[in-house]
Design a protein around this nucleic acid. Structure first.
Lengths: 256, 256
DNA sequence: CTTGTTTCTCAGGAAATTCACAGGTTCGAG
DNA sequence: CTCGAACCTGTGAATTTCCTGAGAAACAAG
């Protein structure tokens, strides 16, 4: 039995470090997509981040909502029923010159044109996406746009393990570690919820894309990969709670 | 009903640490399921938590009740006679954008089609469930949703024994203790009712799933397991009241 | 087209957990 | 003190849960 001595009463942060506007009010995000199941899913996930969400189903609605709601960021599907995303972008910009936009595009579509747009500080993710990806990108945009009060750090740390959300660099105790995209997202999710048990279902819902229909044991598999890279040899940080899920926490001082 | 034999005429002292809304009124929960035996069972257990309960048997009723009752949380069976749980969810969200939902699903059947449910901070339990599980999950949802005063602690403490509901960590006097899932739930139940005698029937009804059909002496067995881990050597916290049940309380100053 | 990487399925095996059973122990009423 | 009921706990087997190797499929880069 690992004998950690203290009862651990360290400050327990909310699921995620909160991002607030300068005046202390919650960050506002406008979600624009014509598939209601998607706006639904996104709304839920983004509200859970503590943000205030408004949705619109088409370009006209988006512009109107932008004017009324004055969001700090916009999630915008490139394909809308009434007008093309780029048209919407133009009108949005007229309302809100500096608001960052996260585009949702289909994989093989006009990726280059979108890519060009991201030069202006915008960003995009391709459908089907994972919620972790969207949330992370959005956080990045908001952080960089200056809409957030404190310029929050892009580095997550748990014990001697660090993960940089901007550069995607991961290191444990000085040794840099190469992770694949999925491994990275899984680790980020764990690290954003340290000391908290996350069920396999939660992980799947959050780290895998919303249309993933495969076996739930991919989670076990990727945990296994992560352990090989993160915990190899050292005292383990990723723990299994049989019947409940997984959690990450700083390694105990290795038993002497 | 369950396999418990004796009539439940237990002393009805006030329940557990109460979760209240900001204005001090009791938390409201809407329970939606078409099996009346289940809504019955749940209502009873949740009322006992000190919450105000309303029930509905189908989707239409759920939406109406949501509008009128404005609950702080909803327990929602995914399979309803008139519409699918996800449809209901959409309509509920229109009424109550931020209300957390606890889904009830069947284990094997639709497991894949509930993807995304936990993503927004919602949660689910699979049938057959134990009441402890439902109550714990609900408390977690409410705690995190902000309906209750923010940042309530997730740690239960009795004497020098602590149990963290987020990390599933248990420790006594600094020594961390590993418990299995069932042991954990049993201990949580005891600790949420300190100094109070809980009969074996109560424990069975509460900690084991409602369809448990085994020998009632599993309770004795698990109490025995717990003692071995919790009380080992130290002065005991788990006590037997012959003919009545068990209770947990802070250890007396150890007799020299 | 070829090659290297990444994602994922599948399946066997290891390990932990749950539980029944039964013999032993303790308690308290008479 | 005696007896039966209530309780405790060792043993072991069935079951569940998790881990991980091997390889197929998908993908990206050259």
């Amino acid at each position: 039995m690992t004998t950690s001595s203290e009862p651990r009463t360290e400050p327990r942060t909310e699921p995620h470090t909160e991002l607030l506007r300068p005046d202390g009010s919650p960050v506002r995000v406008l979600v624009v997509d014509d598939e209601s199941s998607l706006t639904e899913l996104l709304s839920m996930a983004l509200r859970y981040e503590g943000w205030e969400i408004r949705t619109a189903a088409d370009g006209a609605g988006a512009v109107a909502a932008a004017r009324a709601f004055r969001p700090d960021a916009v999630v915008l599907d490139v394909m809308l029923p009434d007008m093309h995303g780029l048209t919407v972008l133009g009108r949005l910009r007229r309302e809100l010159p500096d608001v960052p936009v996260l585009f949702l595009t289909v994989k093989d579509a006009v990726e280059d044109r979108i890519a060009g747009l991201t030069a202006g500080g915008d960003d995009y993710v391709t459908k089907p996406f994972s919620l972790e990806e969207v949330v992370a990108r959005l956080r990045g945009l908001i952080r960089r746009s200056g809409a957030a009060a404190r310029r929050s750090e892009s580095v997550l740390a748990v014990g001697d393990l660090t993960l940089d959300e901007d550069s995607h660099e991961v290191a444990r105790g000085g040794d840099s570690i190469h992770l694949t995209a999925t491994e990275f997202e899984l680790l980020r999710y764990l690290m954003r919820n340290p000391r908290r048990v996350l069920s396999k279902a939660q992980i799947l819902d959050r780290v895998w894309s919303y249309d993933f229909g495969g076996q739930a044991n991919v989670v076990e598999l990727y945990i296994s990969y992560l352990r090989r890279k993160i915990d190899a040899g050292r005292s383990p940080m990723i723990h299994t709670r049989r019947g409940a899920g997984y959690l990450i926490k700083p390694a105990e001082a290795a038993a002497a």
